[in-house]
């Protein structure tokens, strides 16, 4: 019931996957997502095979196949946006609902979108379950993302929980001053009043954040900040981790090559 609790997905652990070089994990996850999205329309045998690849990764990283599958459902509500495709895609009519016609091509396309998004979400979740965010940032930086952007994001992560708790305090203060009797009608004022209270809280949070940034900057200056942030030494690059990271990519590539060969004629 508490919508405020800000919790990271990362779970520490010891596994081949947890210990993999974060750079390789990021490249591998993006490659996997790209590979999943390339699945040709209607190539349904490819989906369980790709799921098997993700499932074995879940087993290796001790996350659990079913747990990962359930977490992958996070994007499923969005599939409603694609649901109308089953009516609008031209194809053989399957079912008539009043004036609406469900076509076979539409169902195939919708299923494809839903399955691809579910599998891609699992690949992304596996990455964040097994990689600390600071490692992710370091990996992104060494993969040539603009370093200033990465440092800004690192700062954001550093103060995310601080300001999250600041927001919680504001919300708690509002809640403790907004008591109403159970049978009281119209408690809480008009819509504009409620919006103004929320807006005032946002403004107040902005000022606290802005002033905190001034304090933080002054503190950084006092410690000799010259516009550059320094990080720890990178772990050595090992060809062995490249091999480990390449296995799932090769598996998905193989599945996709087969799918393309099989389903070229069908389309």
């Amino acid at each position: 019931m508490n919508p405020l609790s800000l919790k990271e997905r990362f779970e520490g652990g010891q596994s081949l996957f947890h210990d993999l070089d974060p750079r390789i994990k990021v490249v591998m996850s993006l490659g996997l997502i790209l590979g999943i999205l390339l699945t040709p329309e209607g190539a349904f045998p490819a989906y369980p095979l790709i799921w098997a690849v993700l499932g074995s990764m879940a087993v290796v990283s001790r996350v659990g196949v079913w747990r990962l599958a359930r977490l992958g459902g996070i994007a499923l509500p969005f599939t409603l946006a694609a649901l109308t495709l089953i009516f609008t895609t031209p194809g053989q009519p399957l079912l008539r609902l009043g004036g609406l016609v469900i076509s076979d091509a539409g169902v195939v396309r919708f299923m494809g979108i839903a399955l691809r998004s579910w599998l891609a979400a699992q690949a992304a979740i596996l990455l964040s379950l097994t990689t600390p965010f600071t490692d992710l940032l370091w990996a992104l930086r060494s993969l040539r993302l603009p370093s200033t952007l990465v440092m800004i994001t690192a700062f954001m992560y550093r103060y995310l929980f601080t300001l999250g708790e600041e927001a919680e305090r504001l919300i708690r203060a509002r809640a403790s001053r907004s008591a109403s009797l159970p049978d009281q009608k119209g408690a809480g004022g008009s819509l504009w009043w409620r919006a103004r209270v929320a807006g005032g809280m946002v403004g107040s949070l902005f000022l606290r954040s802005y002033e905190r940034s001034e304090r933080v900057y002054a503190a950084m200056l006092s410690r000799g900040f010259d516009g550059e942030l320094r990080g720890y030494n990178p772990p050595p690059f090992q060809w062995r981790s490249v091999l480990v990271g390449a296995i799932p990519l090769l598996a998905v590539a193989l599945i996709q090559i087969m799918a393309f060969l099989w389903f070229r004629g069908v389309r």
């Binding site: 440092m151 994001t153 300001l163 999250g164 600041e166």
Partner: peptide, 13 residues
């Protein structure tokens, strides 16, 4: 860097 980073955290919060 500190200003943009902390304000990003602000938007999130």
């Amino acid at each position: 860097i500190p200003l943009m980073g902390i304000l990003a955290a602000f938007v999130f919060a």
